[in-house]
Design a protein around this nucleic acid. Sequence first.
DNA 1: AATGAATGAGAGTTCATTCAT
DNA 2: GATGAATGAACTCTCATTCAT
Lengths: 194, 194, 194, 194
Amino acid sequence: MTVLDKRSAILDSAEVVFSTQAGAATIDEIAKAAGVAKGTVYLYFKSKDELFISLIEERIAAYMKKTQDYLAAAASIEDIVTFLVQLRMEFVVQHFGLLNVLFQAVVPGSAEAQDRIWTASQNAQKPFVEAINRVLGPNDAAMDPQTMVVMISGMADHLVSHRIWEDGFLDAQRSAADVLGFVLPCLRNVYPGR
Amino acid sequence: MTVLDKRSAILDSAEVVFSTQAGAATIDEIAKAAGVAKGTVYLYFKSKDELFISLIEERIAAYMKKTQDYLAAAASIEDIVTFLVQLRMEFVVQHFGLLNVLFQAVVPGSAEAQDRIWTASQNAQKPFVEAINRVLGPNDAAMDPQTMVVMISGMADHLVSHRIWEDGFLDAQRSAADVLGFVLPCLRNVYPGR
Amino acid sequence: MTVLDKRSAILDSAEVVFSTQAGAATIDEIAKAAGVAKGTVYLYFKSKDELFISLIEERIAAYMKKTQDYLAAAASIEDIVTFLVQLRMEFVVQHFGLLNVLFQAVVPGSAEAQDRIWTASQNAQKPFVEAINRVLGPNDAAMDPQTMVVMISGMADHLVSHRIWEDGFLDAQRSAADVLGFVLPCLRNVYPGR
Amino acid sequence: MTVLDKRSAILDSAEVVFSTQAGAATIDEIAKAAGVAKGTVYLYFKSKDELFISLIEERIAAYMKKTQDYLAAAASIEDIVTFLVQLRMEFVVQHFGLLNVLFQAVVPGSAEAQDRIWTASQNAQKPFVEAINRVLGPNDAAMDPQTMVVMISGMADHLVSHRIWEDGFLDAQRSAADVLGFVLPCLRNVYPGR
DNA sequence: AATGAATGAGAGTTCATTCAT
DNA sequence: GATGAATGAACTCTCATTCAT
């Protein structure tokens, strides 16, 4: 197992444990889940706070990486929004436990952790906002793109939370369709002619 | 101070402390904030978990109480949705610290606490769903009302979180208008003719 | 057992444990020795460092209390020096383990602890220095009183350390006589005519 | 770098680190300061305790080496005492951090370490005691030479500690003169005619 | 009913020591 | 010989909970 593998193993275990136990996750459990000793966790992360922040930041970075190519080529608002919803659903299927933590402000840990996580999650929305601005061109649209991205993200997240809790699983396809079925027609209202 | 007053004082202090300190809230702080001794908290709530659950359940109950009369008289989906959004914003202005905790699954405490809080927050949506069903009558609408309520709630919560973090305060009026400006036109698509 | 008793019990146990184990003393051992739970120690002292500093400061304060009346009445340098040596020996019989720590700069704990302990131990010498200055009156003596107090203290401490380690006990009477037998004759040299 | 060089490098670094950080010195820091890996320290010293003891013993051995020739030739008690005080001051200038540790019983580490260090420091006084005995010849002096060596060492050490803490540096010349100015006249009392 | 001193299990963190490379 | 990643026992400190008053 290489060094990177071990770091990843700890992060993966941390995700599972944080997701399962929320604020009650202990370093002991994370270490055990990763198959390493408690002290080893501290070789890779200088504190529990640091570990948690790294986990979120790394997951968000991976999420954002996927957006770049697509958004650069996106030609319409419908494209962008569709992509946003689908990507978010996909992300959630993989990282459900982190969802609430990721795109909400409730995080265990210090005030510094809350700030850094909030900043990271805001950054994750930027590429979408920028893509929309590019597509719109100079405009006087009724709703600023930032607000729209926030609202649509909220819809998706909430629906996912609801269905996973209710049903125990997520039909990402159908959920994305539900969100888009509601949202896409409206876009013509908000940004007419695009 | 009557018995009920003391219980309320503890709950109010608990809300302030939980909101301010998230997971780090201690019984000591709550007691001090309520002006009672630590032991007294345990006369009214059998554990910290119990106190937290009671807090959420009571706040949700108060929220739901407000809906009954209005929803019974509501005549259109637009009415209902408008009311949902405005009420939610108003609630948030009063209880922002609890928002994320209330309508998300991330809670400090035991698995039992998570379940009870989730159940309570789901119940809070029911009256809206029922009102919509009543207004719709027997129907084959494209989107089931439950899904719609969930999505709209998500939009509102997310926007609120975003703006409070970003700006440090919430313009409830404007935010409600932003959400409704986007949502109401959509409704005509989803439930045409209503 | 009153509150003050418990605080004293902890301090007494701390002295024994610190003296016996030097830097390796643990809160657990101190608590056990005092017959209280670990957490109780933290009711009375906010950290291990604080506990250690309080211990030293309190012992020095008790030591200084004994000096006041006597020094105010002391009429000659010989009186003062004799008192210094005897008091120091007596103190050491009661608090041997702390000796090295008390009047030397080697202390376990933070830099802040070192400073505060150093300051306290310096203050313990002041009354002697002042008394000597008073007795001397305005003068151009060969040796400043501060230096002399420091040196004589060093002699006494060192001798005590040596004999306790070597013999396992201290004959305070004899040791004081040894120090004074060496020192007193010289005083006539250093401060002639007094 | 030869094997001996590396051992020396570790000892030198250990001295710096022990002196600077008192009880908080870690093997990691010592290794880093010596430019070797942590594991390497264990090739030369079987434990941290062992390293610490070796450090003290080696410094004392070096100190004693300097005394042999001189003491063998010393012809009077004044010579010997003067040499004792000056050598001790000189030693302290080089090894101040270790002083308190060296000639006091406060040492980090096990009881065994305390014993061995105490023994070593006592041995360092022996050559002086023997030299004095030799110079005195068979005698019934008022004070046994052992006691006198101990007391004079204590004066010197204490004065040094005091001045370094107070002033931040040591004027060895002046301090030696202060001690000798006080002590030499006393000797004529204690050992008259020598 | 009300208190708050006392408890002790359990948390995060450190660091001497080991050992496969 | 030399390394440094890995270990886990042991530490300090916190805090939910209890109970004598």
